[in-house]
Amino acid sequence: MSELTITLLRLGYLALLWVLVLFAIGVLRRDLYGTRITDRRRRKAAVPAAAAAAVATEPSKPETAPTRIPRAARSGSGPGRLVVTEGPLRGTIVPLGTSSVLIGRAPGCTLVLDDDYSSSRHARIFPQNGQWFVEDLGSTNGTFVADQRVEAPTPVPTGTPVRVGQSVLELQR
């Protein structure tokens, strides 16, 4: 066999080793993705491309995550989304519509927290007369708006930290 063939085989073999390395890394790259957000109404329309576009890819770059703000919320000056700023779900964005958002550990909640310090149905954030309110649903550890424990439904201005268990949420435009 010629010298050239041998050299090509030798380098080709090394390339093959690295192809396996890179393919394996490509497979495990999926682990880096965190949670994903799907819009229930969108999902019913069953457009796979739209579902893929709604995936919040990396928690460190929440601003790149595409969010779909409903027209009703966008037309007013009120907040358009609920953002988790601290805790295990940091970077998660829940677009706000016209219905209330239930927060807690129960799988049926809108924002499901995997947090031993949050109750199954912990708090509810709901709109009334053009303003968003937070209401504690009798949780063990309480809900705090700007470090004040919530006793009755309390208005939440945009940008105010709301603490639920180990997570901190805030409303953003």
Binding site: S100, R105, D116, Y117, S118, S120, T140, G165
Partner: peptide, 16 residues
């Protein structure tokens, strides 16, 4: 509206 909570989540909450 408010979602109905399924019945299988009755683990106690840890107190802070």
């Amino acid at each position: 509206g408010t979602p109905v909570v399924a019945g299988d989540d009755d683990q106690p909450t840890e107190v802070m």
